[in-house]
């Protein structure tokens, strides 16, 4: 969805921000490095890093951005667990954009990839 939303606004971004590259996160996304680090420290459950990331994001972007970023991060802590605990496959696995993103980010190595790729292997 990052690529799709960037395309909708004709913004050039570097998707490697999702992989944790701070300079990539900065490309085309306001407060990208701060948002990336905040999300990362929450998901990694690294409390010292989270405290520092919260402070940095607050100072850079203000409380409104911090609270909304917390909401989105919390939302996706839920969504990944719904997907993996019910074993749902990706809906659009054959979509070229989906395939490109999987290749760019190396997603096929994730253990939960079997829920989608096993189906492809079975049906091909």
């Amino acid at each position: 969805m990052l690529r799709v939303s960037a395309k909708a606004t004709n913004t050039t971004i570097d998707i490697q921000g999702i992989s944790g590259d701070a300079s990539a996160a900065a490309q085309g996304i306001e407060y990208g490095p701060e948002l990336m680090r905040f999300a990362e420290s929450l998901a990694r459950r690294n409390e010292p890093d989270l405290t520092a990331a919260r402070k940095d994001l607050l100072e850079a972007a203000g409380p409104g951005v911090l609270v909304d970023a917390a909401g989105v991060a919390a939302n996706f802590q839920r969504m990944v667990r719904i997907a993996d605990s019910t074993g749902i496959p990706v809906d659009n696995l054959d979509n070229p954009l989906s395939q490109q993103i999987r290749a760019d980010l190396g997603l096929d190595t994730f253990s939960s990839a079997r829920n989608s790729l096993a189906i492809t292997a079975t049906s091909s």
């Binding site: 990052l2 998707i15 990208g32 948002l35 999300a39 990362e40 998901a43 991060a73 969504m79 939960s112």
Partner: peptide
């Protein structure tokens, strides 16, 4: 960006 980073760390395909 936030959604993608959280999902990547959780290794969510």
């Amino acid at each position: 960006l936030i959604a993608g980073r959280v999902s990547a760390i959780n290794e969510c395909f």
